[in-house]
Design a protein around this nucleic acid. Structure first.
Length: 237
DNA sequence: GCATTAACCACAG
DNA sequence: CTGTGGTTAATGC
């Protein structure tokens, strides 16, 4: 709250907010002072609470969104039910693949922890891509990473068994928090829909891992006791 | 056949 | 929303 007030004050006083931003994206680091000034004039910073929808599938979008801090889930309404595609921690862009060719969001993004983002006007963003090759290159790097991880997720989802998928998910959270012990930001239902299985299976496998002393589970608090084993399960199921 | 896996259903906290 | 148990369908040995 204080941050936002400060931010607005700075903006009204004409301070160069983006230039002084400490969590610039790799792409934004390629912008010169003049471009950063333009960016400051065309972006807005917003805080989201856990559970707040940042963008909604189907809605019109005229922004690229840069997540500065927090955790975001990307989800899509499938033919039968909604599916969680990815869970990413900041820093990450939302909306890159769609804003370039389409005006409509083809997925939703929701904050699953307190999250701070910048909305960036799509026109200025496009102008940077056309003007500044280094900027464009960094955006492409980002898109490539995303594509690769999507492909990877796709084969893992199809070929690994449930144990492996859930082990991988736990390792992913281990990665996100960079801690052996963390609080799951998802319900069992959501974790199931992230790992392509039912909430029942998630429950069962978590207690199984608990009994095997590989993790410690108490409600949403998870502690990884045997990471090697978890990696092994992730690999072999 | 028999065992394993995972989905589905139901019911209790 | 969770945890658990029972049932069932599919698949592999």
């Amino acid at each position: 709250m204080i941050h936002i007030t400060l931010y607005i004050m700075e903006k009204e006083l004409g301070f160069d907010v983006c230039k002084r931003c400490g969590i610039k994206s790799m792409a934004a680091r390629m912008l010169n002072d003049n471009e950063l000034e333009q960016l400051s004039d065309s972006c807005a910073e917003v805080d989201f609470k856990k559970g707040d929808i940042i963008i909604k599938q189907g809605a019109l979008s005229s922004n690229v969104i840069y997540v500065k801090t927090g955790l975001v889930k990307f989800h899509l309404n499938g033919p039968i039910k909604e599916q969680i595609i990815r869970i990413d921690r900041a820093p990450v862009f939302i909306g890159l693949p769609m804003t370039f060719n389409d005006k409509i969001n083809y997925y939703s993004a929701t904050a699953i922890e307190p999250t701070r983002v910048c909305f960036i006007d799509i026109n200025i963003f496009k102008r940077f891509v056309l003007q500044n090759g280094d900027f464009a290159f960094q955006i492409i790097v980002d898109l490539c990473k995303n594509e690769y991880s999507s492909m990877n997720k796709c084969v893992n989802r199809t070929q690994k068994n449930i144990n492996g998928r859930i082990a991988d998910a736990l390792l992913h959270f281990n990665d996100i928090y960079d801690k052996k012990e963390f609080v799951l930001p998802l319900s069992r239902q959501e974790l199931g829909n992230y790992t392509d299985t039912s909430r029942e299976n998630v429950s069962r496998i978590l207690t199984e891992l608990h009994h095997d002393q590989i993790i410690k589970v108490s409600n949403k608090r998870i502690k990884i006791l045997n990471e090697e084993m978890l990696i092994l399960i992730g690999k072999n199921g």
